[in-house]
Amino acid sequence: MLLVNDISKSFGGIQAVKDVNLEVKKGEIVGLIGPNGAGKTTLFNMISLFLSSSKGGVQFLGENISRETPERVVEKGLLRTFQTPVGFPKLTVLENLMVVPKQKGEGIFSTFLKRKSIVQHERENYYKVCALLEQFNLFQKRNELAENLSAAELKLLELCRQLMANPKIMLLDEPASGVNPVMLDKMVEHILRLREEGMTFLVIDHNLGFIYRICDRIYCLANGELIASGTPEEISNNERVKSVYLGVNENESA
């Protein structure tokens, strides 16, 4: 479904991502782990075309998407979330989601000329959003401003928002960070349920327990290079992965 070929990116002198290859098949949940600064987010930015790659390309559903715009890629069904899930702080939860579909009212002239069909469209949009919020236990908060939500709720809202765009594959950047254990279980449930319904995922996270629980396969990145890939079991026993993570821990405590 998603195929990344020999992709590289350097910022000035820093090589953030170096000749990375990876593949995600339909219906899979694939993990992407690696210490801070490994280049994981940069890789996401390139796949979703927020950043141009210095070298290499991305194929999605058999098409080369390297020359597309970010909007076109979303239209094709590739959605990504952000590491800091701020969303739209001064919009309510409802508005955060209702803004997603392409709508009749999104024009200056249509605002004044097509009032009737806008109201109709808003109603349908609203029902769709409410059903989604109900699934994610956010319905009670629908009229809260997003800035008043907890970190975990924001992560869920982020997931909901991208779901509103009808994705075929979702790239999640640290969906578990800042999420307490109870909410983490919920997050796992949601992701697994969505996969049952046919969704495909590529997930970045530092919480290895979480990654091992949900992923079929895992890639490990360090200093921009792919150093290992395999099943959760293979990865958890991989010496290079262990050493990279231990190395980081040593640095952090130093």
């Binding site: 239209e75 969303g87 702080p89 806008i118 991208q162 765009a165």
Partner: peptide, 25 residues
């Protein structure tokens, strides 16, 4: 009228976060 319409909501979304607005297409 503009502020209360879906267009107004969309405009405020851009103000709040351009990147996220782009990420939903």
């Amino acid at each position: 009228r503009l502020a209360d319409s879906p267009m107004g909501r969309y405009m405020r979304a851009i103000r709040e976060n351009e990147q996220v607005t782009q990420s939903i297409g």
